[in-house]
Write a protein that binds this DNA or RNA. Sequence first.
DNA 1: CATATTTCAGCGTTACTGAAATGT
DNA 2: CACATTTCAGTAGCGCTGAAATAT
Lengths: 152, 152
Amino acid sequence: MDPRTAPKHLKSLATWLLGQASLQGHRLIAERMAALAAGHRSQYALLTALAEAGPTSQADLGRRIGLDRSDVTAAIAEMAGRGLVDRTPDPADRRRNLVRITDVGAEQRAVMDAEVIAAQEELLAPLSAAERRQLLAMLTRLVEYHTGTSEG
Amino acid sequence: MDPRTAPKHLKSLATWLLGQASLQGHRLIAERMAALAAGHRSQYALLTALAEAGPTSQADLGRRIGLDRSDVTAAIAEMAGRGLVDRTPDPADRRRNLVRITDVGAEQRAVMDAEVIAAQEELLAPLSAAERRQLLAMLTRLVEYHTGTSEG
DNA sequence: CATATTTCAGCGTTACTGAAATGT
DNA sequence: CACATTTCAGTAGCGCTGAAATAT
């Protein structure tokens, strides 16, 4: 893409700029994940949720990170196969699977996390520390406004 | 997604917040496009580029809006079939197709544009006018920095 | 009974790759 | 020859739907 010849109208749209910036961020992360032969973004998000919240049902995991129930099922199954997580029925509610991160999973998450952190730095390179704080604060308000309002 | 239970670590990542905000913006636009039975985002971007720049080759269109050559081919073919654009060989370089927006295409773009503009308002609702300016300015710098630097 | 969870099969869009055919 | 453009075939990830089986 050449931003010098991009339509001015598109360049004035928040949705377009957000899409381009988001895509760039995802590209930076994907490059680093591919170099590690590590998993994908959704696996990183799942491992992070498990590391923070402890054993969690799949439905809860999906709600926490905004991943669809069916995608959670597939990702957790794949990760269980690689020994990154553990799945056991919840004795308190036998509909649920309690998913737990393993030691191997925690190590994997640490490796991925270093790459994710480095990608943030790459992405935000042109912004000062104060600007980064402003940007994160505004994005947080946007996300909380919309996910708290119209979504269940 | 419930932002109150989202992992704090994810909520501190620019890539994650940008992804969520971008997704929300795309959802708002997609809802409105679906209600019109109008085309998709990429078609809107193509029509906008054609309206601004006049007759353009497909390769150029792709460069301007950041759409892959093969996706441009498919989208333009579909739009030509619906009479939104016109495709003729460029006499100056017969490898190229000169793509031109038609009157029907221009009308379609105007209809889509009204929805896109309304979606911006919905998305940015929690931000003041000054904050919106700041956000757009920072996103513009991010996008120009990355698409001007590492991409051809 | 209504509701919640897991799982599976499948769809549509987006971003992308590789290669062939054509032309500069 | 190297290079650019269009086109086609195919891949992968993401977001999502509908429905079945199971349990509360």
